[in-house]
Design a binder for these strands. Structure first.
Length: 977
RNA sequence: GCGGGCGUGGCGAAAUGGCAUACGCGGCAGGUUUAGGUCCUGUUGGUGGAGACACCGUGCGGGUUCAAAUCCCGCCGCCCGCACCA
């Protein structure tokens, strides 16, 4: 394959060398003249003149982490798109903010540093420099003054500040909004609110509590709080991870290491308190439906009821169910193996006549199954070995009976209590009432180990007929649970009867009954869990938190921010034993953990928090820092924030970033976390919109061939050779795959190669012409010449390739000239396509115009200025350097950056006559050219002139004529009798 | 299993009810050139025909309509997300 274009024989042909010369020249000019600096309404970056808020447009990319392997051609796809769009919008008169930065803290950067044995501060800096160079070569129009890095203390000072906002806030359940903790304390002191009982077991009034208890109570309300809970522990990374960072098969997203469940005390953020708003506010956003669906699924709202069951021991077992209507059919209870009541409810001996299936005999052997305690212990240990996600693999259900019973409050029946790993401790209450006749999972367990089934919803006849051998009142014959709605049966007891009711009515009746009798209440639960926010890693934001002798956390005052990350030479995470708590690297930093501080009551000793914040902390709010990057008084000036974020009111927009472009992989990570932080900042009055990102656009991925060897490992795609027997690597046959370009598939292609062969403008244009922006597309290097030739021809139409001089200029085009009309029609269409970010079709139209222009120039040996300038201006957002160069060569003193996008001449779009197809019985038979306002008779008359049509109509009766002005003439005929 | 999306030439793709395949790549033929490349011109869905043309053709089957790639119903295939969530 010869991908190298030949060296140009014409000295001034637009080739790779000339393109590079032009590109570097204009990048220098842009940098020298500050072309891409966007003014602010006020502050350090303020403009000389006032800015019109109605014209503002905030266009942003998801910023990258500074990868060590540099950029591949898949990375800049979104960056180019946002660049093209922002340049276009600027030409359309918008004041466009288009910034760029680096997500420099976090696991990927730290893992890279460990691999290379260098300090992350150094590798991060190097990687940022390298990525800046590669991106700079693309000529992106980012405002250089607003470049940010989340690992910069001037940046993370404010990340820490926002953390303190969370720490110093609580969520008022009455309004669902964040409020300052000081309000909470005031309410306690006034007696208008009673402390929750969990932290105040004796329910003593606030004024009688000692200081430490008061602090405990308050801490339990905070949006940032510490909690001892089962977490995702990843020994391979030496840290805990958020649920969102664990893959479906129970491994870490970064590094693909196994993840285990383990109880640890960690920092959590109370995102669950905002679940409802995170869900309902999705409706107001201009995001794709599939992305909204992903967030909705992740939040996972379900409506039901809590029910408390009285058990042999303890104060009762609380369960959550979405089907309270089936309460009479609840024949046993199942707890998660980790449920706190398991120990208490485990009996010393098996009750008489306990079936062997309930004892786990088959699983653990007769010896272990000899007592409830040993069987339960064995079962709990077994489930602890695998992660939540792995537990969900499709295997037959297992369970162990605790040896104790509860009572069904409506039927009065005895219900055995079991533990099973299909009940998850983190969802609902960690316990369920099993209704085996009407829940598939319960059905499977009940039939597996022989538990009683009671039908309480009568299956309909159709369902019964579809299930062979199914008898309505014998669920064991059904083969599966009947979980649809229906009519209640077998559901009457003392004080309540549901027989004959429909599902919805019955749900309502039971819920009311539960509330009246004090046995339960209506409740809504979410799959979303609180966000585990601490990591036992080095390369992240330190917490602005210290501990005093009580061990309770204390927020550092704002004046002591930032808490800088101390320099360390050995910053690796430490391996620890199974029962040992991991030690965060910062605890080894000399002089960091134990400090003497004056927090207002004199110098005292404190212990610093040594965990760091996760990857996502900086990206939760970075878009706000772009607005006011140098402000050292606050995280963003309120007036500046309002200017860029406020909704324009257009199309009911509520405000936020006007266009946010990025990959779909952040659907439930960054995008959910960020929305959460933004809502807290909104509630506290720090930002003016309830949502951060009004419009979100997911660009597709660039795909490329990838190859695996016989071990299933990926081999470098660039070194694979194509042979008649298939692809080979180092002589060995390899298997071809196809996937997202990137490091993991070893199929990256560097943009540097494309710059060398064609230049950056060609690369920009190629990435935009490949296909629709939101669709995955294969990297096809052979196709690049298409847009390269386009730019070459455009250049040649203006510049004499041999001399470098401007070609002769043709006289002004007449208004009825075909090229004039095509020019304006193209402007009109391209404008629409740019507005919709359909750059591939816009480019196709430009190529058509350029082809027509080329013929004109060849014929006349001169170029028509209108057509050329329109093309140069339309090309500018895409191929900015060569367009700038041509604009200058065309004799313009003004910068093309400041020129308005061309407007179509409305007269040129008006055609006096139009050509439409004629179909006879729906078969195309030719075209007619008729007056624009011709009527059906006129069209028919013209059609009769067509030899074809006239001939075929001979001997036919016209049954119907469909004339759609401007579209078609269809004549329906049938043979004459 | 549930939810969402997609299926059009040799390839990337246009057309969102009105001439299917715009534009680009690749192919074929010709011109320029010592030659190759570059560049330029023509041509390029399939079948038949010398040709004008004719018939067929948007995953498969049905439907609505004067008219369907497009709308509706049912299959098939691929991709993405979720997945024991009580």
């Amino acid at each position: 394959m010869n991908s190298e274009p030949s060296t140009d024989d014409a000295k001034f042909r637009y080739g790779a060398a000339l393109a590079e010369q032009i590109e570097l020249k204009w990048q220098q000019i842009w940098s020298d003249q500050g072309t891409h600096q966007t003014p602010n309404p006020t502050g350090k970056l303020a403009a000389d003149d006032t800015l019109d808020p109605a014209r503002k447009l905030f266009v942003m990319d998801m910023f990258p982490y500074p990868s060590g392997s540099g950029l591949h051609v898949g990375h800049p796809l979104g960056y180019i798109a946002s660049d093209v769009y922002s340049r276009y919008m600027r030409m359309k008169g918008k004041v466009v903010l288009h910034p760029f930065g680096f997500d420099a803290f976090g696991l990927p950067a730290e893992q890279y540093a460990i691999e290379t044995g260098q300090h992350p501060a150094i590798t991060t800096e190097q990687n940022i420099a390298n990525m800046r160079r590669q991106l700079g070569r693309l000529g992106l129009n980012h405002d250089p003054r607003r470049a940010i890095s989340t690992a910069d203390p001037k940046f993370y000072r404010w990340t820490q500040w926002i953390f303190l906002q969370l720490f110093n806030s609580w969520c008022d359940p009455a309004t669902g909004q964040a409020r300052p903790v000081s309000d909470l304390i005031a309410e306690f002191e006034q007696g208008s609110r009673e402390p929750k009982s969990e932290t105040n077991p004796e329910n003593r009034p606030w004024s009688e509590l000692d200081d430490v208890t008061k602090r405990r109570v308050i801490d339990s309300y905070r949006l940032a709080f510490q909690s001892e809970a089962p977490v995702n522990w990843c020994p391979g990374l030496g840290t805990v991870l958020a649920n969102e960072e664990v893959t479906t098969d129970g491994r870490s997203q970064v590094g693909n290491y196994p993840v285990y469940r383990r109880r640890m005390k960690q920092w959590m953020l109370r995102i669950t308190a905002f679940a409802d708003r995170l869900l309902s506010d999705l409706d107001s956003l201009d995001w794709t439906e599939s992305l909204k669906t992903m967030q909705r699924n992740w939040i996972g709202r379900s409506v039901g009821a809590d029910i408390r069951f009285q058990a042999d021991a303890g104060s009762g077992i609380q369960v959550f169910t979405t089907r309270p209507d089936t309460l009479f059919g609840a024949t046993f209870l199942v707890l998660a193996p980790e449920h706190p009541l398991v120990k208490e409810l485990t009996a010393d001996e098996w009750p008489q006549e306990t079936p062997d299936e309930w004892k786990g005999t088959a699983q653990f052997g007769a010896e272990t199954a000899a007592s409830p305690r040993s069987a339960v212990t064995a079962y709990v240990e077994q489930t602890a070995r695998v992660s939540d996600r792995q537990r969900q693999a499709e295997t037959s259900k297992t369970a162990v009976f605790l040896g104790s019973y509860a009572v069904n409050p409506v039927s009065g029946e005895k219900m055995p209590i079991l533990i099973s790993d299909y009940v998850l401790v983190g969802y609902g209450t960690g316990a369920i009432m099993a209704v085996p006749a009407h829940d598939q999972r319960d059905y499977e367990l009940a039939t597996e180990i022989n538990l009683p089934l009671v039908p309480v919803v009568r299956p309909d006849e159709q369902w019964l007929s579809e299930h062979e051998g199914a008898v309505a009142d014998r669920p064991a014959t059904w083969g599966e649970a009947f979980h649809a709605d229906g009519t209640l049966v077998n559901s009457h007891g003392t004080g309540i009867s549901l027989d004959g009711l429909g599902t919805d009515e019955a749900k309502d009746r039971v819920a009311s009954w539960l509330e009246e009798s004090g046995l339960g209440a209506r409740r809504i639960t979410y799959k979303l869990r609180d966000w585990l926010f601490s990591r036992q890693r080095y390369w992240g934001e330190p917490f602005p938190i210290v501990y005093d002798e009580t061990g309770l956390p204390i927020a550092l005052p704002e004046s002591q921010l930032p808490v800088e990350l101390p320099p360390m030479t050995d910053f690796r995470p430490q391996a620890v034993g199974e029962d040992e708590d991991p030690k965060a690297p910062l605890s080894r930093a000399p002089g960091f953990e134990h400090v003497e501080l004056d927090l207002g009551d004199g110098l005292r000793e404190y212990r610093r928090e040594t965990n760091t914040m996760p990857q996502w902390a900086g990206s939760c709010w970075y878009y706000l820092r772009y607005l006011d990057p140098d402000n050292d008084q606050c995280f963003v000036d309120p007036d500046v924030e309002k200017f860029w974020m406020a909704g324009t009111g257009e199309d009911g927009r509520i405000g936020g970033v006007d266009l946010y472009i990025g990959g779909v992989e952040h659907a439930v990570l960054h995008l959910l976390y960020s929305r959460f932080w933004h809502k807290v900042l909104f509630d506290l009055g720090h930002v003016s919109t309830p949502e951060p990102f009004q419009r979100l656009y997911n660009q597709g991925y660039i795909l490329a061939d990838a190859f695996t060897n016989s071990n299933g490992r990926y081999v470098p795609a660039l070194e694979v050779e194509e042979t008649p027997d298939g692809p080979t690597y180092q002589g060995e046959p390899v298997k071809r795959h196809y996937g997202k370009m990137g490091k993991s598939l070893k199929n990256s292609i560097s943009p540097d190669e494309i710059y060398q062969s064609y230049g950056a403008d060609t690369l920009r244009m190629y990435e935009m012409v490949m296909g629709p922006l939101d669709v995955d597309r294969p990297w096809q290097p052979d196709d690049i010449v298409g847009v390269y030739r386009f730019l070459q021809r455009l250049w040649r139409n203006v510049v004499n390739e041999d001399t470098g001089a401007l070609r002769a200029e043709a006289p002004t085009l007449a208004a009825d000239d075909a090229l004039y009309k095509l020019t304006h029609r193209t402007i009109s269409e391209v404008t629409g396509y740019f507005d919709d970010m359909r750059f591939n079709v816009a480019i196709a139209r430009m190529i058509e115009l350029n082809n027509a222009l080329t013929q004109f120039v060849q014929r006349e040996n001169a170029f028509p200025r209108e057509a050329v300038e329109a093309l140069v201006l339309m090309t500018f957002p895409l191929a900015s350097h060569v367009s700038s160069e041509l604009w200058e060569r065309l004799g313009h003193q003004d910068r093309i950056d400041d020129v308005a996008f061309p407007a179509a001449d409305p007269d040129a779009l008006q055609e006096d006559s139009i050509t439409i197809p004629v179909t006879l019985n729906n078969k195309p038979r030719g075209t007619i050219t008729i007056a624009k306002d011709a009527d059906q008779e006129g069209a028919m008359a013209a059609a009769q002139q067509l030899e074809n049509v006239a001939g075929l109509m001979e001997g036919q009766d016209v049954v119907r004529v469909v004339f759609v002005p401007g579209k078609i003439l269809n004549i329906v005929t049938k043979p004459q009798k």
